[in-house]
Structures are given as C-alpha cells and as structure tokens.
Amino acid sequence: MFARKIALLTVVSVLTAPLLVACSSDSGSNGSSEEITLYSGRGEYLVGSLFDQFTEETGIKVNARYGGSAELAAQMLEEGDKSPAQVYLSQDSGALGTVEGILATLPTSIVNLIPESYRAANDTWIGVTGRARVIAYDSETVTEGEVPTSVFDLTDEKWRGQVGIAPANASFQSFITAMRIAEGEEATRNWLEDLVANDVQKYEKNGLILDAVDSGQVELGLINHYYWFRKAAEVGEDSMRAQISFADPKDPLSLINVSGVGLLKKSQENPNAIAFVKWLMSKETQEWFANTTYEYPLLPAAEAAEGLPALDSLLGPDIDLAQLSDLPATLKLLQDVGLI
C-alpha cells in the first residue's frame, strides 16, 4: 500500500539520516584523543584555516563552534557548568567582560606577553588582536581634510543626516563606554542627544555602514578600521569609494578595542587549551592576523600590516580596557536617548 510504503520510507530515512550526515561531514578523529572544544565568535571563513594549522602543528584537534560573540556568551551562561566549551574566543572585550564569572584565571606566563592595557584586570582574558575605531568617509563628496577628527564635530549641522552608526553593535557600545569614562556622563548624554537631533543614521553593523558610505548613502560612518581593508581586499582597493581617516589620538573616537580569548573554569589546568591560547599569542599567529585580517597584533614583537599607522601612535583615550566592561550603564544611556 502506498501509505505504508511512505511511512516505511520515512522511518528508515529518519533513522539513517544522522549516519549519512556523520559520513558526509569530516568527523574522523584520526586516532588521537587530543582535542579542545572552542566557542568562536570569530567566523570560520576567517579563522578556520588558522585552527587547521594549529592542529597540524600540535596534533590537537579543534572542535570549533562558530557563532556571534554575544550569542555564544549568552549560550555559555545558559549552559552553566555543563557547557561543553573549554575556550572562548570573542570578537570584542564587552562579551568577554560579561562572562568573566565563568572564566578561569590565565597563567601569568601568558598574560604577561602583552601590555596591561589590552587584557582583563583580573587576568580572566587577554586581547588577541586590536582594532582601531575610524571614520569612513565618502571620497566623492568629502575631502580628507574635512573629515572630523573629534567626536564633538560629528554633531555639527554640516553633517545632518550624514553620519552612520551601529548602536546595537558591541564596538560602538565600547566606544560610548570609553567616552563616558573620558568625557563624563553628562557630556556623553548631551552628545548622544545632539547626535540623534542631528538625524544620525542607524545601521545594524559596521559592514553595512561601510557599504552605505561606499554607495554614497551617508558621507561619514563610524566603523572599525579593518572592515575597510577587508572590503578592499575583496573588491579591490581601486573600486573603494569610501576611504578611512584616523581620529585625533586622544579623542574617544580613536579607541583601540580588542578581540580576546579566555578559558572556561573547568579548563584552567587543561594543557591543550593552554597550548592553544599560547599559540594564538605566538609571533607567527599574531602576524598571520596582521596580514590576513588587517588587525593590530598585540604581541609587541609582532609587526602590523603595511599601510597602517603604528598602534602606539593611536593612543586612544586615557582609559584602560577593563573599564569598558561597564556595559549596563552604556546600554541604559543608549536606551534613554532612543538609539537601541
């Protein structure tokens, strides 16, 4: 009977489906039990080949689970002690800050590799790469000299409706936190209100702001520097209508934010997990980041990509990154002015 055949076929295929998938996805463990489970807020397209290289060099397999940094953080908090994650690699320090409570203290030999300003005060995570906040501008309508160098110029009437920001994005929120610390609560609130009154344009993320500047939708956009370099690498530097400009080194606009890594508590002593973090901070890996993602290496011995201003020339506002974890007050402020 037709109905019975369909039912039988369905049962058989449901039971065999996972086997089929197991065969199709490369899950061969090549006989070694040396492996780590990593929650990666950085995409596979970017770092997948890097992890393969780690496995090749050390024989330790990386079970990488990719997702948004914040979503993975929310997931780890929901999983609690039962989380399969051993290592957490995050796009931004904000997400690392919110999971500090479930992260282990890193060995001093690792944390001392990089300057104090790029790691957690309590040594639960360290920065892997640095990103500078920059202003992208439409080179067809704005000259480099006209681009504001101070955050306070952005609320000028001249830029009405012409500034793109990503208020829901972690890097923008870190910048606002930095501004609160550097310029004070009142000044930051006033500035945000002026910005809203000046018809600021809201986007979902940095990449979309850059696309908008590149297609002439807005004249200025606040983004991280490497978005420009990455897009230029994808479509060719000559076809970039958007250009970027670094702000005054002391202005909150020139904040250096970091991507970072931490170990989950139960993996504090896990040699494989520790080896992975050490390897991320090695000169070779740091320079791989510099040349592949155009971010700043944080290991002092590693060199940044050509064409970038030196990291220490972009001092950033006078604050330390650990203070950036005061995210709730920033969110409250952004909610109050109606940006998120």
Partner: peptide
C-alpha cells in the same frame, strides 16, 4: 559542533562582509 548548513555557511561569509 562542526555541522554546517547552507544558512550557517552563508552567515559565516556575510558576517565578514565577504
């Protein structure tokens, strides 16, 4: 972990503006 669908592969790339 490691299981990719078309939607996740798409996300992998658009997330990086590729």
């Amino acid at each position: 972990t490691g299981f990719e669908t078309l939607a996740t592969e798409l996300w992998n790339r658009t997330e990086l503006a590729a």
